[in-house]
Design a binder for these strands. Structure first.
Lengths: 342, 342
DNA sequence: GTATAGGCTGTTAGCGATCACACCGAATCG
DNA sequence: CGATTCGGTGTGATCGCTAACAGCCTATAC
């Protein structure tokens, strides 16, 4: 910190300062920074030394200005407090950091056109290199279609029927596994407490549940619609607990299962002795529910890796296309499932 | 979308394009954009019309380059999957968006010097306007001290003893309230399952618990150290369940409480009939634990608002200083507390 | 020995905004 | 009526970087 420059104190040293100290031109410094091959080893070392000595840090804004893209990817998500989105966001950030990208979040209150568009606009204003939209509902898809075509974009858990690059957890497969697991335990049929009907996640899980039942030759019982929250799980559970024929329940996520579990408990219906329950998500606490919850674990890390990789491919090649990738979830068996008493 | 420009398709229109269309100079456009007063109303309208027609969007990178600051604030946090940090992050993003700022996350695996510094460096490289560090552990504080002094910085839940702008939940007050609530219900003493000892949150909650007990003239029982997870709560619960004298437990967060609850359940110790439990955080599911959990709710929105406000104040004034602000949590009474049987 | 290639480095011209300043005309003032 | 203010606007320089090109110098080929 010795050697007082006159007026560069605030903004820190620039590339020319490094160049002067190393006795080269600023362009050479640039080449070193960007890993350009044609630089003599000795020069490279001198430049690196100068960089270290000055504590120089390249100015991302300047780079973004000239290249037209910053080393930032924008993420648009709704409720980053929910376990799924939060995990996804964290994994995404981790992966992005490894690739030298920063992540800018644009969370939105509602997943309608306007909110999504506004969030995307904000990212566009900052000239992000690409955008990841965690767009689990119908209305989000519409907003996406009227987006500029030249910005790399990947949607996660979005609409499978739209021609947009998409990474998604195989909800149906997870739901099939859960349902089949209950069927295998000997249950005649399986009831389902679903998520909100406008989420693709919900729809996929409902489909998987229905498929598994139909494949086993049983007519699916009526659907209990919930909204992801423990509160709605509790409400559904209060109804399920009253029906003697119910012996197996698959809930669209673990929080719903928690609510169901409590309702069953209040009605004195024991789990798993009388009723078996399977959730979805494998939140860290699921193993400590009463009883420990059998559930389906989506691999958020894999989803994050896949989407980032897909995004980077677009950034580098410049082309979009409608690629898609699916990540299979796995069933985690715990104590909330048992054969029915007959 | 009619009227094909020749080679500006990719990067979109620039300020000069707007200026040309409006028949003014680029500087006037700039003035309109920044709400400068000295522009004739009629001119302002013409410029706005041109902006709308071209779908012009100011280039944040260019602005950041010349002003030296972008409209982005960086957030450094550790485990954004935990409920507290996730909520905080979401609230922060929401508040920042209202002020026209984007939020860039830099999550770190570990909260040691190196990780924190690296995350901060990344933000600095992008010339963020300010940084919020969610720094709940000791080692984070050290990293903060060797940071450039000229970048606006606010820490959340950080070290109360460091001269850094700080916003924090009044952990001790929350813990006192929880402990007092149990004492008021008639319990002789209160046991505590704490978080990791290097988190300030833990320390504060331990202090509050101890203070409340001492104020009531009772010698605090041995501390049960946990690590925030339901798993560790379960382990502690297995010990607590074995001790007949235990009638009241305060856990440092709701997940610990969940683990404790399950251990007690397995040992056949009924809550709240035999043992009362109070948690901390008020996660959305807490109301659906078995039984519904009495807990302490920190106001994350308030924390987010306070920290952002503090940060903006620094950004505008340019000075730092060691201001601090504390947000009081509130007790949420549910069914997990009852008088002891004697 | 001259030509050609190619590794290494410097020079110049922008990217798209803001800032400082110059300028013009109308209103105000002595 | 000339001088001064001031609202409204344009001009040029500049931020820190990368891309394109030009130039040097050494090695290899003919």
């Amino acid at each position: 910190m010795q050697g007082g420059g006159s007026e560069m104190a605030v903004h820190g040293p620039a590339m020319t300062d490094v160049a002067r100290l190393a006795g080269v031109s600023h362009q050479t410094v640039s080449r070193v920074l960007n890993g350009h091959p044609n630089v003599r080893e000795q020069t490279r070392l001198r430049v690196r030394a100068a960089i270290a000595e000055l504590g120089y840090r390249p100015n991302g804004a300047a780079r973004a200005l000239v290249t037209g893209r910053s080393q930032v990817i924008g993420v648009v998500a709704q409720n980053t407090t929910l376990y799924g989105p939060a995990s996804l966001l964290a994994a995404l950030e981790q992966t992005a950091a490894e690739e030298g990208f920063a992540v800018s979040v644009g969370s939105v209150r509602d997943l309608d056109h306007r909110s999504i568009s506004a969030a995307v606009e904000r990212h566009l204003a900052h000239r992000v290199a690409g955008i990841v939209v965690i767009a689990p509902v119908e209305s989000a898809g519409e907003a996406l279609e009227r987006l500029p075509k030249d910005v790399p974009l990947v949607t996660v858990d979005g609409d499978p029927h739209r021609p947009v690059p998409l990474v998604t957890v195989d909800q149906a497969a997870g739901a099939r596994a859960a349902t089949q697991h209950l069927l295998d335990a000997g249950h005649r049929t399986v009831w389902h407490v679903s998520g909100p009907s406008d989420w693709f996640d919900s729809v996929g899980r409902i489909e998987g549940w229905r498929e598994a039942l139909l494949a086993a030759g049983v007519e699916p019982p009526p659907l209990m619609p919930g909204d992801w929250s423990a509160a709605s799980g509790y409400r559904c559970g209060q109804m399920l607990a009253r029906m003697p024929e119910v012996t197996a329940i698959f809930t669209a996520n673990d929080h719903l299962a928690l609510g169901v579990l409590r309702a069953l408990h209040e009605f004195g219906r024991r789990v798993p002795a009388e009723i078996s329950v399977v959730g979805f998500d494998d939140v860290p606490e699921a193993a400590y529910f009463i009883p420990p919850l059998t559930t389906v674990r989506p691999d958020f890390d894999a989803v994050a890796r896949a989407s980032l990789q897909m995004l980077l491919a677009q950034i580098e090649s410049g082309v979009g296309g409608a690629m898609r990738q699916t990540v299979a979830p796995t069933l985690v068996a715990r104590d909330s499932v048992a054969p029915p008493r007959h």
